[in-house]
Design a protein around this nucleic acid. Structure first.
Lengths: 132, 132
DNA sequence: CTGGGTGCAAAATCTTTGCAGATCC
DNA sequence: GGATCTGCAAAGATTTTGCACCCAG
């Protein structure tokens, strides 16, 4: 099956415009509410559908991605993770995190920073070998 | 109301043991399935309840945390984020990401790394000032 | 015209919660 | 004994999907 050829729709255009015009990182619900006045019959389903298309075509990014399920980790020392985009496995990253980043980041942003999280994404060595 | 004083239960103990004994980062469903043979009447609700308690008491960590809703970002250039734990707002981080981290990380782990994500957590300057 | 797009509502997915009985201290 | 915990089932919360009609190219 050839990839779907998307057309243009007022709703999708406006969703993208809205996101391009804000520094916030709105949820689908919020976008829905913002556009509702202009599209009185707009439905949340349409917003989700279009957000997914826009992510798929590379116009948008989903934050807090990761798979649908929450995952749990009993290693409480700070450490980074690597997530395989093929098999969805989550691996601990074998290097200690850089705590000093937080101090630096706090100075720059003037926010109080308590922690940070680093995730690497790619194809793990097992999936890589399997496909070659 | 004083904080709840947790007791011990076989189910909770086993959930923690299971997580302490694995390098994987299982989902609630997976934990449920692993323990089911030993607790034939175990329910998913109990697993979730206990995971939440273990996170609350600091024995576990939830990966891919963030609020319940997905958020969307139209800025496609790589950049980091700061998330305020008080107001849940997500701020863009005003410094360019360190792409060379990926090369280095790839060498160490032997995975193929395409991207990485950094999130800082803390209290944003607005919430900080408001509460003082 | 034709195939993608929409609204609406139902379904699916993941997580939480109310309740009655069991369990821990 | 009393608060906590469990299983079960129902409810919540978030996202996806089926369908019939609408609209862009």
């Amino acid at each position: 099956m050839s990839p779907i050829e998307y057309r243009r729709s007022k709703q999708r255009t406006r969703i993208l415009e809205l996101l391009n015009g804000t520094k916030k990182h709105p949820t689908a619900q919020l976008i829905y509410e913002q556009l509702k006045p202009d599209f009185p019959h707009l439905s949340l389903g349409t917003v989700y559908r279009n957000l997914n298309i826009l992510v798929e075509t590379g116009a948008l990014r989903k934050l807090h991605y990761g798979s649908a399920f929450d995952r749990y980790d009993a290693r409480m020392d700070p450490h980074y993770h690597f997530i395989c985009s093929n098999c969805d496995r989550v691996y601990d990253f074998p290097l200690p995190p850089v705590k000093s980043l937080e101090t630096k980041a706090g100075e720059i942003t003037e926010h109080t920073i308590y922690s940070h999280k680093v995730d690497f994404f790619g194809i793990c060595r097992w999936c890589k070998n399997r496909s070659s």
